[in-house]
């Protein structure tokens, strides 16, 4: 993928990511040029001096995790070797911070699969199990509390979202005269958040999942403002999770522990779904309201729903083309 030199010879640095940055060959070529010329031009002196300083600074810092983290490349430019190192570093960072040994994987999108979600509003009873299961699966912090899924309580016979509330506190659900509308990331085909991102830290994968490279996100929150479904969350402070509640089965693009100042979102649990499992919110739903599957498989449940039921799309008029469908029945 990249054309850079394999290793730096001078500093015995084997990390390929630091090779172009610490530039160990600079002082050598400078000195050689000095000797060859026999003179001491201002340019060559400066070059030699700068090179020596660069080598002095780079040599000790080149191997440190901080250095590698600072110069880590965008996810799409990471080679497989880079990924092994980056994941190992992130695992080590989590271990040092929380004491939990986690494994960070990177399951690739399955060829020819287009994930989609369908949600039966006749069955959903607003029990919020999905939001809690999502939080446990995806290592969402409890302080400050963050949830990817919001369950809106609306009056029967209306879809006035502004009159709905997520702050309903009831002993039993469903409450009479109410229905419930869970909203999470819709994984839009025409995603406003992707268009808003100035750094390319968020993009749409081939299987339809919109992901974030948390190490490339600068935290500008443009995507959060652009999302019409209120699906993105920002880490205002360092997220705190109880070590016993950390899910050690992590993926780089989804549920690894995030840091302060980055935006995150629902990824249809890609660490699960790309390995054949259902998302956490699906598995925990006691009512069977949630349906998940491959839209390109004509026998899958979501495809059958999209073909046979009258599905509707939240805020269809804004043309986001989501992969998330609601239906009744």
């Amino acid at each position: 993928m990249s054309q850079r030199p394999v290793t730096c010879q001078k500093t015995d640095c084997t990390a390929p990511s630091c090779a172009p940055d610490c530039a160990p060959s600079a002082p050598a070529s400078g000195l050689v040029q000095l000797r060859r010329d026999g003179g001491t031009s201002r340019r060559s002196l400066l070059q030699a001096a700068a090179g020596t300083v660069a080598a002095a600074v780079a040599a000790p810092a080149c191997n440190t995790p901080e250095f590698e983290a600072y110069f880590q490349k965008h996810y799409k430019k990471l080679t497989d070797e880079d990924k092994v190192k980056v994941f190992a570093r992130l695992e080590e960072r989590t271990r040092q911070k929380t004491g939990v040994r986690v494994r960070i994987g990177d399951p690739p999108p399955i060829e020819g699969v287009h994930f989609a979600y369908a949600l039966n509003l006749s069955h959903c009873n607003g029990n919020r199990r999905c939001a809690e299961a999502c939080a446990r699966e995806n290592n969402l912090p409890d302080e400050p509390e963050m949830r990817y899924i919001r369950v809106l309580e609306l009056d029967n016979g209306s879809q006035h979202l502004e009159r709905g509330t997520v702050y309903y506190d009831r002993d039993k659900v469903p409450a009479p005269g109410k229905f419930y509308l869970p909203v999470q990331c819709h994984q839009c085909d025409n995603a406003p958040c992707v268009k808003a991102c100035p750094t390319g830290a968020t993009w749409k994968e081939n299987d339809g999942i919109v992901v974030v490279d948390y190490d490339w996100c600068i935290g500008c929150r443009y995507c959060q403002a652009a999302c019409p479904y209120h699906a993105r969350r920002f880490n205002w402070v360092e997220p705190k999770i109880e070590p016993s509640r950390i899910n050690p089965h992590q993926a780089y693009l989804s549920n690894r522990i995030r840091q302060v100042g980055v935006v995150e979102k629902c990824t249809f649990c890609l660490q699960r779904t790309r390995r054949g499992m259902y998302p956490a919110c699906y598995e925990v739903c006691p009512t069977g309201a949630r349906k998940f599957g491959d839209l390109s498989d004509p026998e899958s449940e979501v495809r059958q729903i999209v073909e046979n039921k009258r599905v509707w799309i939240l805020k269809e008029d804004i043309g986001t083309e989501p992969r998330f469908f609601y239906f009744y029945g």
Partner: peptide, 8 residues
């Protein structure tokens, strides 16, 4: 009818 999870 079932008991919901806690309010956000």
């Amino acid at each position: 009818t079932i008991e919901p999870e806690k309010m956000p």
